[in-house]
Amino acid sequence: MRPMVEFCINRLTPDVEKIKNKLENDPEVDVLESPCLGNCEICAKTPYAMVDGEIVTGEDGPDLLKNIRKSIEERKKKMEDLLDLL
């Protein structure tokens, strides 16, 4: 299952738009653009996205992308560890 990264259209600043476009070109990631993700306080303060339903923030666009990639890798590792237990 591919990770789902969701972006609020109200927070699509030029740097966040670049991140969204990069991730849309990644065949390992599903990207969704929503009119509102219901996290208005966070949305007003910092760039953010939802990765499989969890909030990921960054200081700026490049930091957000780094944190999204990190979150995806951590989730992938957790899933692999879980499957190893089976």
Rank of each mutant, 00 (worst) to 15 (best):
P47T: 07
L64I: 05
M79K: 12
K77N: 10
E28C: 06
R2H: 06
E6M: 11
K77H: 06
N67E: 10
T46F: 01
A44Y: 03
N25T: 12
P35I: 14
L64G: 11
T57W: 00
P35F: 10
I68H: 00
N25G: 15
G61C: 12
L64W: 00
V16T: 09
S34Q: 05
L23K: 02
L85E: 14
D60A: 07
K20G: 03
N21S: 14
L12M: 13
M1R: 08
K66R: 09
C36I: 04
C40T: 06
T46V: 09
E24R: 15
R69W: 00
E73N: 07
E41P: 00
K70A: 03
L65M: 08
P14M: 11
P3Y: 01
D26I: 08
G38H: 05
P35H: 13
R11L: 06
N25D: 15
V31L: 05
V56E: 04
L83I: 14
R2A: 10
I19D: 02
E24I: 03
K77S: 14
R2N: 12
T57K: 14
G58V: 08
D26H: 03
K22T: 14
E80R: 13
L12Q: 12
C36D: 07
T13Q: 01
L82Q: 08
D26L: 11
R11H: 02
L32A: 11
K22S: 15
K22C: 08
R75M: 14
C36T: 07
I9M: 11
Y48G: 03
C40P: 02
K77A: 12
L12I: 09
L85F: 08
K78V: 14
I72G: 00
R69C: 03
K77L: 13
I42H: 03
R75T: 12
M79Q: 15
G61Q: 06
